[in-house]
Design a protein around this nucleic acid. Sequence first.
DNA 1: TTCTAATCGAGACGGTACGTCTAGTCTTGCG
DNA 2: CGCAAGACTAGACGTACCGTCTCGATTAGAA
Lengths: 197, 197, 197, 197
Amino acid sequence: MAERRRGAVRNEAARLAILEATATLFAERGYDHLSIEGIAAQAGVAKQTVYRWWPGKSALIADCLLEGMLLPVDLRVLPDSGDLRADITTWLDTVVGLLESPSAQGLFRSLLAASSADETVGQRLRDGIAEPALFADRLRAAADSGEIRADLRLDLVPEGLIGPLMFRALNRVPAEPGYAAALVALVLGPRPAPPTS
Amino acid sequence: MAERRRGAVRNEAARLAILEATATLFAERGYDHLSIEGIAAQAGVAKQTVYRWWPGKSALIADCLLEGMLLPVDLRVLPDSGDLRADITTWLDTVVGLLESPSAQGLFRSLLAASSADETVGQRLRDGIAEPALFADRLRAAADSGEIRADLRLDLVPEGLIGPLMFRALNRVPAEPGYAAALVALVLGPRPAPPTS
Amino acid sequence: MAERRRGAVRNEAARLAILEATATLFAERGYDHLSIEGIAAQAGVAKQTVYRWWPGKSALIADCLLEGMLLPVDLRVLPDSGDLRADITTWLDTVVGLLESPSAQGLFRSLLAASSADETVGQRLRDGIAEPALFADRLRAAADSGEIRADLRLDLVPEGLIGPLMFRALNRVPAEPGYAAALVALVLGPRPAPPTS
Amino acid sequence: MAERRRGAVRNEAARLAILEATATLFAERGYDHLSIEGIAAQAGVAKQTVYRWWPGKSALIADCLLEGMLLPVDLRVLPDSGDLRADITTWLDTVVGLLESPSAQGLFRSLLAASSADETVGQRLRDGIAEPALFADRLRAAADSGEIRADLRLDLVPEGLIGPLMFRALNRVPAEPGYAAALVALVLGPRPAPPTS
DNA sequence: TTCTAATCGAGACGGTACGTCTAGTCTTGCG
DNA sequence: CGCAAGACTAGACGTACCGTCTCGATTAGAA
């Protein structure tokens, strides 16, 4: 009983070409200097076809994020070795490693600019990098088991980890070796002493 | 003795009018949608007078920050009550309080966008908000006195405090009451137990 | 024998709706500013249905003329009182009367623009206003009877009468009272003196 | 004392390039199919420079007429041999001769279309072809001398001569040899018999 | 009946041009 | 020389139509 649309159907090839052109040009030129006109030309598509489906360039970025076309690796999974600190450090090291390349740094900064202009981009960026659920279960379990101190505000952990990365990206401060581990130590605190039996 | 330049000297009134127009329009419209043309018109100045002294809009923002025209209060001083945690919490509460107004939130997000486009803006922003020196001495003293744990990476504290604020600003997550204190607790860790004598 | 086509037959309602929409929009907006898209929308019809039957907007105008949808009165008949000069003056006064309304003037000018773009429109316009046959017989008879001078080039009379109207329409010069009679006098010459017996 | 403007002055080369491009493209492609974008490109000029000085393409055409860039010969002068009928016939033959070339016919039709869209074009066209003053003095003199009949409405003569040309141009009817003379005879009437003394 | 060709509505598509806005640069005349 | 004024090239903006095409529904003669 699906309300069946009439008329020609959307061209998937055009949709993909537009998103790919967006991703390419965004990585090359950054958020400002990204023009719909350029995207349409690069995609071999009429400008109106872009405007038909997206209201502006920030929405294009948001969709690129949704399709995983901007982030080169999948950050939405946390390794599970049993040691939460080690796992988060590993995960964070992946992110930090990405940011070593200047072009990836620029891309990340541009993503922040895009987030500044459009709320949806921020949501998608969060979903693509550090959705709350990524850490939540592990953190709760770790708190229960005493691996981290019991009074830690678990909901602040994601922003405690990602926020400093934003700070450094905007300030063009590269991450030194061991930065990931130091950040984990800062946010999760020192490993509590094992209870004496 | 000073080799005195010939010809007309720079018009200070024009300089100020331009920076004030920049600050006004930046607060009203955000970083993109800020145009040199608009600034010149608002300042009652020829466009060329802007271009003669500044290379682009990001440099204007940077200078506005330098002149303290964008941030309504002076954040470059940390109260000193003797209790570092309390002092930082107080300071952070000031910042958080600013961000409660939606317009100030937008201004802050726009500052992040400007930082993304221009390194200098980031520097000035850091200088205007949380220069390293703001915390450094107090932190070192607190570490010496045992007020905070000795192994804390003190250099990570500023980014550990400001980064999460950036995260929330970009994600449009308002700060709940007690957020400042929770953030301080997260980054500085719990107050260590006084040493048993 | 007739090779009978299969398939659905042309929708007469759609055809009429399209022509009516064309007439309406042409009168409202003029020849340029007349768009196929607008016509289709106004007629509640798909754009393709227009393009299936007409090659462009000038053909639509031509068909509207053929159906008499653009000219409010039928000009294809010349009264016959016995006095040719009076009859033509009467007929011309009808035309001039039409052109008194500014909207009808605009419509007439638009028809000239359409004629300029498409030969067929000109033909249909001529057929709808002053087909050669309209005057030919009466003129010949009048020449024979001496009502007009014998050496008059009868074939030039229609353009001699209509041409000045075009001139005035394009130059936005309204016709003063008595214009029709003056024009008839100009073209047909003064009434010859009756032959003395 | 002339109120002297400040700021850069209008670029005459650009102005001329634009008008020349307009004339070229108008002759090549006609009134519709004439695009500001194409004119700017042809003139090697930014689009805004066109829009700064002209509101639209009809104004460009009007200015081209004013500069005499569209009509290949100067029609604003009537020969004077003493015989008005002969002079007008000569003048009209020039016009008719121009209209023999199909491209000039198209240009003339396009001028009519432009006149239809913009009153100013019509004025300029009239000024460039048959300003009232062109005929007025000679006609009055001829009426006084009895060369033409005294009761002729002299003010109708220009439209009586030009109108039929418009009619034929719009209807794509070429002028046969002798057309100019026939038209003069139609409008001015036969040469009156010399008064018998 | 079933098949098949044509029509219709809706509307996506690659394009062209619109008229406006802004970026930076350059030019002119005043102080 | 700085400055206001403002013209200039360049190019993106977002919109309107162009003429073509594709989709599913409908219609009506042919098989």
